[in-house]
Design a binder for these strands. Structure first.
Length: 613
DNA sequence: CCACCTTTGAAGAGG
DNA sequence: CCTCTTCAAAGGTGG
């Protein structure tokens, strides 16, 4: 299997093991099919791109009309259908689709039909089946190394996919990974989970679903976040997350997950009635823009003054306040329509114009949100799992647990998220070149810090926190945050020989970015089992430095708003880790915190000597 | 209705 | 350069 070029490319899961086909004959057959399909789609892609360039200016006039599938639409549809059908079959067979090449094709995702918590430790994907779909999308620098062997197309037309889409345990060269469907019980999803079914008419509204054979499409629940939320195993809990129904297919998440609003709180969402991009000068490669301008359904290329920006890229980061008003995305669901696969963007957009929110939207301009950092990505993925395990629902408590678990992750595991976050930032910066985090200052309501009196500074740190002590969020009876007992990584990755380690962590740093913080100094090396020559206490460029985080470190336990003192991120020996994570910070932690000796003493001597090397 | 809580990390502002 | 602040997600809670 071709090895992905580093160069910032996606190397995640490059060595992940994959589920084999039943037999080689089958595999070869599928590979052949896949190759053939790709070739065909390549042609289609080219024609689409050309066509789109020619027609891009006429989109406005078409905007009012219902989208008519073009020849390419149909062709693509056929191809996509093949993929989907195959995907489903594979899913049922428990095999996966393997293609010898393709680097960077977007992956359509359909939910994993079986695996409840499979994502343990791995981003995403938790429960997704990735379908390889060829479609020119973003030209992501991070995936620049992904070179289609057949790619004669210019770089800007190459089929690049934001690698952030890739599950960490999935190699990009594995276009389709499916899981067994042993838990798959086709059925009618709850109405509220059938975005494509018009509750009023009972009809499915999507063009695609009307054409695709039942069961050929999997779809992603809105309940699932971009990176995938492990679903709960229980059927009753399962349905909300996996509204799978062969008869109610249609919602296909865009390969760029964030492009499709999911869940009430989409990671990145599309404002009702459209999308106004605050940054007209959106950087988009040719393929992207052409797709946007032409391949987008007329409904996407909205005529509405506040609809999609001409660039048409509803980046998830763009959020309209109005959207949060509708947790169920009512403005999206019933009237949502999937467009021909030619839109492979698989964007779904309300066909109706949302009448009311329009004005509101004018007042409240959507803003581009910050890209998620590594921890946020981790939280996004793991929250559901923790919630399911703990029966806790308060985010504050969940976050505490997640924070502890975060620190319990091995370095490699964290590296995955850092890498993902890095790519997320890359993508974000590509989409919003002029964006600055400062733009969002004040988007939130004033922090209490600002509200409070300047002189009450010394007091507020405790007072505010005292209102809700940490322990309040840590019900003693809930041992769910015990990493040893519940954290997947602990169970799943006893010490994965990390091949993957080589790449994700260290190389993450690019010319434009500093080396990943990785909290190197905070990792209990004993767990990592991967003493690296460069892994030294000084290798951290500017990560969360214990000494620099907060002046009043010991007090920062109660420090509101500001950074956590990383009390628990201290180099606590693993043997003490559990205890550390189950108990509030103590003098022990502080001691460990202020002294790396605590770590070094607890570390194998070899570690120390190695670093000396 | 909305700020708060809570977590880590990134980025910006200011000294 | 260093320190501090803000925001990103999430959803229950409380004013």
């Amino acid at each position: 299997m071709p090895q992905l070029n580093g160069g910032g490319g996606d190397d995640l899961g490059a060595n992940d093991e994959m589920i084999p086909f039943k037999d080689e004959g089958e595999q070869e057959e599928k590979i052949s099919e896949n190759v053939s399909a790709e070739r065909d789609l390549d042609d289609v892609k080219s024609s689409l791109v050309n066509e789109s360039e020619n027609n891009s200016s006429s989109s406005d006039s078409e905007a009012e009309r219902r989208p008519q599938p073009t020849r390419q639409d149909l062709e693509n549809y056929e191809k996509a259908r093949e993929y989907f059908s195959e995907a489903l079959r594979r899913q049922q067979d428990g095999g996966f689709f393997k293609s010898p090449h393709y680097p960077g094709y977007p992956f359509l995702m359909i939910p994993d039909l079986s695996n409840p918590y499979l994502s343990s430790g791995s981003l995403s994907t938790g429960a997704r089946t990735y379908l390889q779909m060829k479609w020119p999308l973003l030209d992501v620098p991070g995936s620049a190394g992904l070179k289609d062997s057949r790619a004669s197309t210019p770089g800007h037309l190459s089929n690049k996919v934001p690698v952030v889409q890739h599950p960490h345990h999935m190699h990009p060269l594995t276009p389709l990974i499916t899981y067994s469907n042993e838990h798959f019980s086709p059925g009618t999803p709850p109405p509220h989970l059938s975005p494509e079914i018009d509750p009023k008419t009972g009809e499915t509204g999507g063009w695609m679903e009307q054409h695709l054979p039942a069961g050929s499409l999997g779809w992603l629940s809105k309940e699932r976040s971009f990176y995938g939320i492990p679903r709960t195993p229980h059927p009753s809990e399962l349905s909300p997350y996996y509204p799978l129904s062969p008869g109610a297919v249609g919602q296909i998440p865009h390969p760029l997950g964030w492009l499709v609003p999911q869940q009430g709180q989409p990671m990145y969402s599309i404002p009702p009635g459209g999308f106004r991009h605050p940054y007209p000068a959106l950087a988009m490669n040719a393929s992207m823009s052409s797709l946007v301008s032409s391949r987008f359904s007329p409904h996407m290329v909205s005529h509405h003054p506040h609809s999609l920006h001409q660039t048409g890229i509803p980046h998830p980061a763009i959020v309209s306040p109005a959207i949060k008003q509708e947790p169920n995305q009512g403005h999206l669901s019933p009237s949502m329509h999937s467009f021909p696969l030619s839109d492979l963007g698989l964007f779904t957009v309300s066909r109706r114009k949302s009448p009311a929110p329009v004005k509101k939207e004018e007042e409240k301009k959507p803003h581009v949100k910050k890209p998620l950092n590594a921890f946020m990505l981790y939280m996004k993925e793991m929250r559901a799992k923790v919630v399911a395990e703990c029966t806790l629902k308060e985010s504050a408590a969940i976050n505490q647990i997640l924070g502890r678990r975060w620190h319990s992750l091995t370095r490699e595991e964290q590296a995955k998220y850092y890498e993902l976050a890095r790519k997320e930032r890359q993508l974000h910066s590509q989409l919003y070149p002029g964006w600055s985090a400062r733009d969002n200052y004040g988007k939130r309501k004033k922090r209490k810090r600002e509200k409070q009196q300047p002189d009450g500074e010394s007091e507020d740190q405790f007072s505010s926190r005292n209102k809700k002590p940490c322990t309040q969020y840590m019900p003693p009876d809930k041992m769910c945050d015990s990493p040893a007992s519940s954290h997947g990584s602990m169970l799943d990755s006893p010490a994965t020989p990390s091949v993957a380690l080589a790449s994700p962590a260290a190389p993450a740093a690019t010319h434009s970015e500093q080396a990943q913080p990785l909290s190197l100094t905070t990792k209990p090396e004993g767990r990592a089992h991967h003493p690296h020559p460069h892994f030294s206490l000084s290798s951290k460029p500017r990560g969360p430095s214990p000494s620099s985080a907060q002046p009043g470190l010991s007090l920062s336990i109660g420090s509101p708003g500001s950074q956590s003192p990383h009390i628990l991120s201290r180099p606590i020996p693993f043997s003490s880790l559990q205890h550390a994570m189950l108990t509030p910070p103590t003098s022990f932690h502080q001691a460990a915190l202020h002294s790396h000796h605590a770590l070094l003493q607890s570390q194998p001597l070899s570690l120390v000597t190695k670093s000396a090397d």
